[in-house]
Amino acid sequence: MSEYILEIKHVSKYFHGLVAINDLSMKVKKGQIYGIIGPNGAGKTTLFNCITGIYTPEEGQILWKGKEIKGTTPFKIAELGILRTFQTIRLFAEMSVAENIMSGRHIKSKQKWYNGIIHTPAYYKDEKENWEKVGELMAFFNLSEYATTPAGDLSYGIQRRIEMARALAAEPELLILDEPAAGLNENETLELTQTIRKIQAMGVTVMMIEHDMEMVMSLTEYITVINFGAKISAGLPAFVQDDPVVVEAYIGSDEEDEHE
């Protein structure tokens, strides 16, 4: 098996004939923190949507541990161990924080089809284990005090933490973060950086889109830069930072967050 956990080979995605991703390739190593940057509208989120099965690219291959996963439905992608957060936070707003995180335990839960109707000793054991895991994650993300609060009532920064806790609850091998620092203040961003390091230390591979350059440069080990759906540069953070093509792309477009 190759050392790369995720390989994207010549992927293209079109919308109504317009190209959103153009012949994009990249390889993510196991255990890496991999950054994707680029101006707004460059196709970064579209790429994540292709990996997680929300979109099916028209061309190219997406290999997960050497196996083609292009066109696989989103829920099966999650079962394979690829979990994500969303740029526009998608929590179950009316449900409590604990219940939100519990959704991440879905694929780990071993309840049988009849446990929806009748409970068995195995059910009680499984249920307890999963809630305990939720408890651990709430402690890890400093969320315990909000356990019963509806997720939608909490601040932006806290909601981002809940989303990460939810994805992590599924014990992913690859965690995909779509602009995890968007809307966070300086302190929260710092905290987030440390959290992502800890997640890496658990053995989770992390892929992230982020606009906060300081954070990306300090955190990631490898970066691909996308503009107009195509790769314009790739390499170590230090290299990418000084690449004239990248500088040009950022000066030539609006750098600040509008929306993608």
Partner: peptide
């Protein structure tokens, strides 16, 4: 619970493996 997750947000629910 899976039913509630689907009810509240199908895309998020699918992304959690449901």
């Amino acid at each position: 619970r899976a039913m509630f997750y689907i009810n509240k947000d199908e895309i998020a629910a699918q992304s959690m493996g449901i």
